[in-house]
Amino acid sequence: MEIDAPAGDETWIRMAKTPRSSFLDRVVQRRALARWREAARAAGSLSLAQLPLLRSDARALRREIDAVLHQVEGRMQLPRIGADSVPAPATSDWTWRPELWRGPVSPFGVAGAENRAQLGRELTLFHDCSESEITLRQIRNRHETDLAPFALRMDVFRFGGSFLSFALDLPETALRGLHLNHLVRLDLKLELERPLEIFCRLNIKHGPNNEQLVREMPLSQGDSFVEFDLAYTRMNEKRLEKAWVDIIFERPAMNQIVLRDMTFARYPRADI
């Protein structure tokens, strides 16, 4: 039995992106669903030459539907998207939660993540595995104690590389008014399947030079933090160009790491 391939059904894809609001829209949707039901029934009798096209069209439609569900289900759950409460010292003059923990990003998942794989615009994965068995996925936070709407889950299976880290670009606002008397605080809310060492490195580019401060994140489930004291750098306050943080995982094989929240705060050092 031959059927009209439902491929390239632009009307259905448009419907997946916009709310249904009219009788005509509902009719079009029912027809599109009926076509895909017929395609499922007929798939067993199609020729092998027809199957690749049908599969390609089905996968394209599934990507659109998955994207819609990711957005809709995220908005329907708590904590609400857009909530951006950042716990910080009272003297803080700058706070920030990266976009991945604030709202949906694209792509929201990567399987077999290669070196320099990205989630959203700010987060990049670095590693030197020849064959990656690393999966990244943005997931929804659902605990009553969660302040961030989203979390990052990383599953690492076999790991034959020598390093694994995230690089997170800080926004330009982090550099405005930054002085040597500032402390920069990084808070993480962690869930670990197995204990592991995590190091955090703050990088600040000023002119042709880079400053680096490295701290080990206390090994614990739940809330942990590190502080970077800029007094220990030779940072040129008048030539600040860029800042980023590296989150470095030591011996991450056979582990699931969930970063429930990540926040930053900046505040002046107390006078002694």
Results as ranks from 00 to 15, higher is better:
Ala16Trp: 07
Ser132Cys: 01
Val28Met: 13
Glu38Asn: 10
Phe228Cys: 10
Glu64Cys: 02
Glu114Arg: 14
Gln77Trp: 08
Leu152Tyr: 10
Ser220Glu: 14
Asp169Pro: 01
Ile257Thr: 14
Asp187Ser: 11
Leu119His: 03
Leu48Ser: 11
Val245Asn: 00
Arg158Gly: 03
Tyr232Trp: 12
Val28Asp: 15
Met1Glu: 02
Leu175Lys: 00
His143Glu: 13
Leu178Phe: 01
Ala60Val: 08
Arg269Gly: 04
Ile3Met: 01
Glu131Asn: 09
Leu230His: 07
Ala231Thr: 11
Pro52Ala: 05
Phe126Tyr: 12
Ala16Ile: 07
Asn209Glu: 15
Gly120Asn: 12
Asp128His: 04
Gly82Cys: 14
Met154Arg: 08
Glu99Phe: 05
Gly177Arg: 04
His143Val: 03
Pro6Asp: 05
Ile139Pro: 02
Arg30Ala: 15
Leu24His: 04
Ser132Trp: 03
Arg194Pro: 00
Arg121Gln: 11
Leu136Phe: 06
Asn255Cys: 10
Leu33Thr: 12
Pro208Phe: 15
Trp101Met: 00
Asp246His: 08
Lys205Ala: 02
Gly112Met: 03
Ala113Asp: 00
Asn236Met: 07
Ala174Gln: 04
His143Trp: 10
Phe228Leu: 14
Glu172Leu: 13
Arg14Val: 09
Ala167Ser: 15
Arg31Met: 09
Ala7Glu: 14
Arg37His: 13
Phe23Pro: 05
Arg266Tyr: 09
His182Ala: 10
Ala151Asp: 11
Leu48Asn: 12
Thr124Arg: 13
Arg269Cys: 11
Ala167Lys: 09
Asp271Gly: 06
Asp223Pro: 05
Leu119Phe: 08
Phe249Ile: 10
Met254Thr: 13
Asn203His: 12
Leu51Trp: 05
Ser162Val: 08
Asp223Glu: 15
Ile65Trp: 14
Gly177His: 01
Asn115Ile: 00
Leu100Val: 11
Gln50Glu: 15
Pro19Leu: 00
Gly222Tyr: 15
Pro6Leu: 03
Ala67Lys: 09
Arg59Cys: 07
Leu240Trp: 05
Gly160Lys: 10
Cys129Lys: 02
Ala148Lys: 01
Leu259Pro: 06
Ser165Trp: 00
Arg251Thr: 11
Arg142Tyr: 13
Arg158Pro: 13
Ala113Trp: 00
Glu191Ala: 11
Arg116Val: 01
Val86Leu: 12
Met217Arg: 06
Arg140Gly: 02
Gly161Trp: 01
Glu197Lys: 03
Leu164Lys: 07
Lys205Thr: 06
Arg142Pro: 01
Met76Arg: 13
Leu202Ser: 04
Pro218Gly: 15
Glu227Ile: 15
Ser162Tyr: 03
Leu188Ser: 08
Trp94Ser: 00
Leu53Cys: 03
Glu133Ala: 11
Leu147Ser: 10
Trp96Ile: 02
Ile134His: 07
Glu193Leu: 04
Leu192Cys: 03
Ser130Met: 10
Ala174Met: 01
Pro89Tyr: 05
Trp12Asn: 03
Val68Ile: 07
Glu144Thr: 06
Ser162Gly: 09
Leu183Thr: 08
Trp12Tyr: 11
Ala32Pro: 10
Arg239Glu: 14
Pro19Ile: 03
Arg37Trp: 13
Trp94Ile: 00
Ile134Ala: 05
His70Pro: 01
Met154Thr: 14
Leu175Asn: 07
His206Asn: 09
Gln138Ile: 08
Gln138Cys: 04
Leu196Ala: 04
Thr95Phe: 02
Arg31Asp: 15
Asp223Gln: 12
Ala42Lys: 12
Gly109Ser: 14
Ala270Met: 12
Asn141Met: 06
Phe150His: 02
